[in-house]
Design a protein around this nucleic acid. Structure first.
Ligand code: MN
Ligand code: MN
Ligand code: MN
Ligand code: MN
Lengths: 227, 227
DNA sequence: TAAAAAAGTTAGTTTAATCTAACTATTTTT
DNA sequence: AAAAATAGTTAGATTAAACTAACTTTTTTA
């Protein structure tokens, strides 16, 4: 039905208009840089996606998802995140290895396959990077979360997801010894140099925005109940 | 490295020159009909595969695999059969559903992934259709087997694999109630009409070559030891 | 508000994989 | 050995997804 390429466009549009912004539309240039193609290429493709009623688009306008496009894009993300979970839980891959394989596996289209996989994994809610997994209807519940950079000195926060999924980032997270759901304390901030000192299991680490802008947290006051 | 298309060509050449014939070469027309494309298309592609040292070919000649091509093709078949096994054993798909999904999964190239999958499945020797699974080096041991049509009246034979993997065939096999490793008795043969009467768990079935030419068996005298 | 910058489009080209139609080579039959 | 049949090749066209270069529209800035 949809080509790999079309699926990748829809996935990127979901990411840009639902996960990473409150704006429900995106420009051709931004989409092009997200997909790592030239704007001319995107111009052509969004015309095609519009004809297929997957996006709303007219010349010189912004691109937004139709209901159908949103669902298709969400299903690609569902497949991606379920395969990542499978690779980690069942085949013992580490969280920095799963993404690249999932980029390919996500394009295998079969409702039955993915729902069986979901069941096999016991209907996981989050993937190895802490990202919510859309359900079989393409709906997703994204829990309230903030960036580590928004935390205040003295806060005790829980790490619930990583924003950057590159190997370099994940390897650094591994190196300083945190995993999803760990708690850390914001010891101090150096606003002049934009540095934050955090306490991870008693050890102090000085980190820059490259780190704090890519870690999602919940802070105590948002953690309802238990604790 | 290799495109989906190139992988499919190599897979078909392995099937035609190793699994289904003792001739280690195949013509352009036969390959074309196996791949369901026109001979002109194959002519172009084998030129390309030859340039990549995956096949031996020259104008108006037959096509044969190089060592490298044979290994690549075998690895596609390894992936196909391991995914089929995964789908059946872990995700509870029936044997008539696994092939189509495996046709897509087989093209996901990662040695690590496939070896982990192999391990996860406990290094299976055969896929759901009774076909041997090539090992991590692309080597395969195909057990000695005959077709059911070669069995003699009175023989008690064990079904070890199916040759035809279509849904229609597999559904028929299910319907008459046999599974791999079951034993059946050859009750009688009607040579005029090319019909064979077989005894499956006490029940008699009259079958044509459409059935007997697509069931692989071992007959008692080839079944060494146990029993 | 006019000029400059940014964003987006169009036209024409490329590559991989396919096709059709016409041609050539090889093999089989008479 | 010639004719007929079969097998295989070539040339030119098509499609999807990319590109570059040139152009146009929209937005920002002065
Ligand atoms: Mn990922
Ligand atoms: Mn992820
Ligand atoms: Mn199969
Ligand atoms: Mn099989």
């Amino acid at each position: 039905m949809l080509s790999f390429t079309e699926e990748n466009y829809l996935k990127s549009i979901v990411q840009l208009t639902i996960f990473e912004s409150t704006e429900r539309e995106v420009g051709v240039n931004k989409l092009a840089s997200c997909l790592d193609v030239k704007p001319a290429t995107v111009s052509d493709m969004v015309k095609k996606l519009n004809a297929k009623k997957l996006v709303n688009y007219k010349k010189y306008g912004k691109v937004s998802l139709t209901k159908k496009g949103r669902k298709s894009g969400m299903m690609v993300i569902r497949r991606h995140r379920l395969w990542e979970t499978f690779l980690q839980i069942k085949l013992n891959f580490s969280w920095d290895e799963v993404h690249d394989l999932a980029e390919e596996l996500e394009h295998i289209y079969s409702e039955k396959l993915i729902n069986r996989l979901d069941e096999f994994l016991d209907f996981p809610s989050f993937d190895p990077h802490g990202d919510a997994i859309p359900n079989a209807d393409g709906e997703i519940f994204i829990p309230f979360r903030k960036l580590l950079s928004e935390a205040k000195v003295g806060d005790i926060v829980k790490i619930i997801a990583v924003k950057d999924n590159t190997k370099e980032f994940l390897n650094y997270v591994d190196k300083i010894g945190i995993v999803i759901n760990d708690k850390i304390i914001i010891e101090s901030k150096d606003n002049f140099n934009s540095l934050t000192t955090i306490n991870i299991k008693g050890k102090l680490h000085v980190v820059s925005p490259r780190f704090t802008d890519n870690i999602f947290i919940v802070s105590p006051k948002f953690e309802k109940a238990k604790d």
